[in-house]
Design a protein around this nucleic acid. Structure first.
Length: 575
DNA sequence: ATGGCTCGCGCC
DNA sequence: AAAGGGCGCGAGCCAT
């Protein structure tokens, strides 16, 4: 007889139609009873969610969750995303970049040839999402069998992650947090960030002139900016979008530039410098976030980007299409809550220096990071109140900067906060020596050969030994690992924040149609679209979630992770 | 025509 | 002397 509740339930949709199969599991992946066929998978899942609140196990959210979402009356609480967990485990095993589909994991398990991962995204059709071939399984393999086998094996591998992979490595917590990210990343574009096309359009018209009737032609103001620039450079036509032609045009006026970067143009004592910068600003808005972008990504009053959970080796999310993580600030005024709704915009204040303080256990820096403006406090204790110096110095320490006038700032920090500075310098040394560093929850960085091959080749061409401890490429890897421990631990915290916030939002008393949605996430910032009457509770949930994430990831640190939270109608009004 | 590269800039 | 981490994206540009 099957127990009445199961810790986990595996879910496999049928290739076509609304049906599928479910399998109750114990925590370690042992099946409880026989598979349960469901003619309406979403209904069966909703019933089980309400009754037992299991952790859902699926091949990938793209095939296991996204197709169900429109038909679910209630969001799911927890999941184990086999593809994401496989990627984490492969990283622990030093096998970065190996295929991580269900089919690849199954093949490794069975000693079969391992299929390469399919190119992701690219607007896969709804029906192909269900298809077994997207899971990369052999045609004669039952997907549920593969899900159960790979899941059980992953649970075993998670338990076997060596302690050395970060003294506080908690691979099961990281797997759960990463999987919670998959839930949030699926739901956010489903609900969509509210986007007012007419506000966006008015902004574009104000900057660029009216939308051209003929696609591909330059808007009037942009064309004018190009002409003014050409006139300032002797009147000969050239393409201002071509760095080569720009450099040549400047050279013909006797102005020698090495690049067309805006900071270099800014130094110029020539009217063309400013005109070039202005042209580039307009051209970028037009090309990257103009009318074509709106047509592609912000239709029907919602911006729906594609997030890629774990798309960055540090565990940060990446995005695919729509540039979700690079929306220019100026466009934020197009993000406006629906009538009767509000936006709760919250970002973690000075997250990375706080992470450094918590990670390193530097009591002095921890005191500085206890609350309020960290840079202000740092300036008061170490930089005679100069906040800019404090910020520059600390960021330079975390990025491994050595240029500019930063030397004295770093010296001061090293003297006042030896434990924190020692922590990042130790991480840098591990990287320079070819070692692996880990985030707080144990996410490993890639081994040297992957990302530093090019630099090493460059060094070889220059006649220097890339592997030499003092070599250029090894120092570059030192900067990477120095930053990795902080960026990746910040990503650990942010995933824990997302998981906690999702859970708290789901617990708020609201009918499904009037429920707050987490609609945007950007490294250390969340936007919740909420019925106005729940906005205060959402803001409180954000603060509680930040505290919960701190406790989960960093334990009993005195460091606080305050959220700077605004309740607004337009995203532009936050901050 | 297509694909991969660099450049430069948007975000954190 | 040069000396800052992580991304995505579009335009230009060049090879095929």
């Amino acid at each position: 007889m099957a127990p009445t509740t199961a810790a986990r339930v595996a879910l496999v949709p049928h290739p076509q139609g609304r049906g599928g199969r479910l399998q109750r599991l114990t925590e370690d992946g042992t099946p409880l009873g026989a598979p349960l066929p469901a003619t309406d998978l979403a209904a069966a899942v909703a019933d089980l969610e309400a009754a037992e609140h299991p952790r859902w196990v699926w091949a990938a959210a793209e095939s296991g969750y996204a197709p169900l979402l429109p038909r679910l009356p209630q969001r799911l609480g927890r999941c184990h995303d086999l593809r994401l967990v496989e990627a984490l485990l492969l990283a622990h095993e030093g096998r970065f970049g190996h295929p991580r589909s269900l089919g690849a994991a199954w093949a490794r398990l069975r000693g079969l040839p391992v299929p390469a991962d399919l190119p992701e995204g690219g607007g896969a059709e709804q029906d192909t999402l269900f298809a077994p071939d997207r899971l990369q399984l052999p045609p004669d393999t039952d997907p549920l069998t593969a899900v159960l086998a790979v899941h059980a094996e992953q649970q075993r591998r998670l338990a076997a992650v060596p302690e050395a992979h970060g003294a506080r490595a908690r691979p099961r917590l990281l797997a759960a947090a990463e999987s919670a990210g998959a839930l949030a990343a699926t739901e956010a574009p489903h609900d969509g960030l509210p986007w007012r096309a007419e506000v966006h359009d008015a902004l574009l018209t104000e900057l660029l002139g009216p939308r051209p009737h003929i696609p591909g032609t330059q808007p009037a103001r942009l064309a004018e900016a190009a002409v003014r620039l050409q006139q300032a450079l002797g009147g000969k036509p050239f393409n201002p979008d071509s760095p080569t032609q720009v450099l040549r045009a400047f050279a013909e006026q006797g102005i020698r530039l090495t690049t067309t970067r805006s900071w270099e143009l800014k130094e110029l004592d020539h009217p063309a410098g400013e005109l070039m910068i202005r042209y580039k600003e307009l051209a970028r808005i037009h090309a990257a976030h103009g009318w074509a972008w709106q047509d592609a990504w912000a239709r029907g009053g919602r911006f729906r980007p594609e997030y890629v959970v774990g798309g960055v080796v540090s565990g940060r999310w990446a995005s695919r299409g729509g540039g979700a993580l690079q929306i220019p600030r100026i466009l934020r005024r197009a993000v406006v809550a629906d009538p009767g709704w509000l936006l709760v915009v919250a970002d973690a204040a000075q997250l990375e220096p706080r992470v450094l303080a918590a990670l390193s256990g530097d009591t002095g820096l921890a005191r500085t990071a206890a609350g309020g403006d960290l840079y202000e406090a740092l300036a008061a204790t170490a930089f005679q109140g100069d906040r800019d110096k404090a910020k520059l110095g600390l960021l330079g320490a975390m990025y491994g900067q050595t240029s500019g006038d930063i030397g004295p700032l770093l010296a001061t920090l090293r003297q006042r906060y030896p434990t924190a500075m020692g922590y990042v310098e130790a991480a840098a040394r591990v990287g320079e020596e070819g070692g692996i560093v880990h985030s707080r929850l144990g996410r490993p960085c890639p081994p040297p050969q992957d990302a530093w091959l090019d630099l090493a080749e460059g060094a070889a061409a220059a006649g220097t030994d890339p592997a030499e401890p003092g070599g250029r490429s090894m120092r570059a890897r030192g900067r990477f690992t120095r930053n990795f421990v902080i960026q990746a631990s910040a990503a650990d915290w942010a995933l824990a924040l997302l998981a906690a916030l999702r859970r708290r939002l789901l617990a708020l008393p609201a009918a499904p149609a009037d429920r707050p949605h987490l609609v945007f996430f950007q490294h250390d910032e969340v936007v919740v679209h909420t019925p106005a009457n729940l906005a205060d509770q959402v803001a409180a949930a954000v603060a509680e979630s930040a505290e919960e994430a701190r406790r989960l990831v960093f334990g009993d640190t005195p460091v606080r992770f305050p959220m700077s939270t605004a309740v607004v109608e337009s995203y532009a009004d936050a901050k």
